[in-house]
């Protein structure tokens, strides 16, 4: 049995929940077992929001907060700088040979953080996902797409084809997760005028990010779990 546990820490409104759902849906399309769930307090923009995707070769029962992740994605610098996180430090519980992807231009880790992560042989990628989102997706709201792309590029846990399918399922038809999410979807849709354009822009963001991350991964000496 093999399993990859992915923990996503972000802020309310960034699409962390959607990101986990998309990864799990894509894994499902690739024929893997998967489960995803969010974890948040009272619904609020900019408050901590976490989500988890568990992907494995056998049926997964485990759910709830993911305490021992293989991969951690940080969607917003404030998760680290303002400790907007359910776990502190944000990498607490990470497994040996793990991976951390942070949406940032600068190194946000202290020397102590670096030391601890190095001891566990955890690789860290500082990835400017928001910049990519603005450049290709033409909106900051595509940050989550850039993060997913990076995760897939490094880990190869899901295929680009499956991600494309998952995005079509998620945004292609009317889907109302909650009032808030629906409004967000509407905002995005208006920006792109057409649904097809939205789908394409999202996929382009993912693909570009995937390529950058793949290139980075090839230069690293990674020993990640595979599923």
């Amino acid at each position: 049995m093999s399993r990859m546990n992915i923990r996503i820490s972000g802020l309310g409104g960034q699409g962390a929940v959607t990101a986990a759902h998309l990864l799990a849906m894509a894994a499902n399309k690739d024929g893997k077992f998967s489960i995803s769930n969010p974890f948040f307090g009272a619904e609020k923009r900019m408050a901590p929001a976490e989500s988890y995707a568990r992907i494995g070769s056998e049926r997964i029962y485990d759910r709830g907060e993911l305490v021992y992740p293989d991969v951690i994605m940080i969607f917003h610098p404030q998760v680290i700088t303002m400790q907007k996180s359910y776990t502190a430090p944000f990498y607490d519980g990470i497994k040996e040979n793990g991976l951390v992807i942070i949406n940032t231009t600068d190194d946000l880790l202290t020397d102590e953080d670096h030391k601890r992560l190095e001891d566990l042989n955890v690789a860290v990628l500082n990835h400017d996902a928001t910049k990519l989102a603005l450049e290709i997706g033409k909106t900051e709201l595509s940050t989550n797409m850039a993060m997913i792309g990076a995760c897939a590029g490094i880990t190869k846990i899901v295929s680009l084809k499956a991600l494309d399918g998952a995005i079509k399922d998620r945004f292609g038809k009317k889907y109302v997760a909650s009032g808030g999410t629906a409004t967000l979807d509407e905002a995005i849709k208006k920006k792109y005028a057409k649904k097809e354009m939205l789908l394409k822009a999202n996929m382009d963001t993912i693909t570009k990010s995937y390529e950058i991350a793949t290139e980075w991964a090839e230069k690293q000496d990674l020993n990640l779990v595979t599923v």
């Binding site: 986990a20 759902h21 799990a24 849906m25 499902n28 077992f33 489960i35 995803s36 769930n37 969010p38 974890f39 759910r63 709830g64």
Partner: peptide, 10 residues
């Protein structure tokens, strides 16, 4: 709650 309601599963 959450473990079932907000979790995506097959």
């Amino acid at each position: 709650g959450f473990f079932v309601t907000h979790t995506k599963d097959t």
